[in-house]
């Protein structure tokens, strides 16, 4: 009884701000402006499949880059002395105290054609490179912004790994590489999985990064949805339908991740 009562504030919160809005999105996705039922919005979403594909590819690439960069970092943190670990984690979090928008905006001044990097390059006599407004710039922005979400869960798992398991493997004659691939990495899969979800989901649905670093010329799902709500035609019905399809993809994706996650848990 007591537990239920303490849950109440959150239940009210989620009912008002999560469940009802979600219902509205579903209702809007299946209705015409006149209020009749229709499948038309969902069918129209199909017209923008390239936009979906592009967003998924960009999200996937940045998630993979995040794993490649984040895993070694998390491994390193988990190996240093315990008292320094907290400091390093703090240092990782510090950039996140600055506004997301501001951090992305500053990448603009770094990557621009007359930006910091190109100014440096031209001062040492190398010709300027066009970096901003490319898919690469967007991936960079995503990796930069979401990397901590990859490092933290992997670090948490690695730090929890029982030293005895590793020692046992070493006793049985495994070299360092073997210990890593056969013991540490499989044990850390749940961390990688939750890191994957925490990076992939926001990367697929972001729009401000693509707008700032992609110069508006690389059109992703976030842009498409924003356009339906704040665009010229103001079509919240199509916007809701697009959001619904996106949600469906993310739910399936989370399902896959969940399966992988529970599998590893079952094994251990």
């Amino acid at each position: 009884m007591k537990i239920r009562l303490t849950l109440l504030p959150y239940l009210i919160w989620s009912a008002v701000f999560v469940i009802i809005p979600l219902m509205l999105v579903i209702i809007f996705a299946f209705s015409t402006p006149e209020g009749n039922f229709t499948f038309n919005n969902i069918i129209l979403v199909g017209k923008y499949s390239y936009v979906f594909l592009k967003s998924i590819v960009l999200g996937l690439v940045s998630t993979i880059v995040c794993i490649c960069v984040g895993y070694p970092m998390a491994y390193f943190i988990s190996k240093i002395k315990a008292k320094y670990q907290n400091v390093v984690i703090m240092l990782l979090m510090i950039p996140m105290w600055t506004s997301f928008l501001l951090r992305t905006y500053s990448w603009m001044t770094i990557l621009e054609y007359n930006g910091l990097i190109n100014k440096f390059l031209s001062s040492v006599g190398i010709s300027k490179i066009n970096m901003i407004n490319t898919p690469g710039a967007i991936v960079l922005g995503m990796v930069y912004n979401f990397l901590p979400y990859m490092i933290l869960p992997i670090y948490t798992i690695l730090a929890k790994t029982d030293e005895k398991v590793i020692e046992a493997a070493q006793d049985l004659g495994a070299n360092n590489l073997k210990v890593f691939w056969k013991v540490i990495f499989p044990l850390s899969i749940p961390g990688v999985v939750s890191g994957f979800t925490m990076v992939f989901v926001p990367s697929v649905s972001t729009f401000i990064i693509s707008k700032m670093l992609g110069g508006g010329s690389i059109f992703v799902i976030g842009d498409l949805i924003e356009m339906q709500f704040l665009g010229n035609t103001y079509n919240p019905y199509l916007g809701s339908a697009i959001s619904l399809v996106l949600m469906l993809m993310i739910v399936i994706c989370m399902g896959i991740m969940n399966q992988l996650d529970s599998e590893e848990n079952a094994n251990t």
Partner: peptide
């Protein structure tokens, strides 16, 4: 105009329904 604008921003091609179905299918 809005449809055309999306087409412009995506460089002329916006895709077709089948591709989306295929993407969803691959996920499943």
């Amino acid at each position: 105009m809005d449809e055309l604008w999306i087409e412009v921003k995506s460089g002329g091609k916006t895709g077709n329904s089948w591709l989306l179905v295929v993407i969803l299918f691959v996920f499943v």
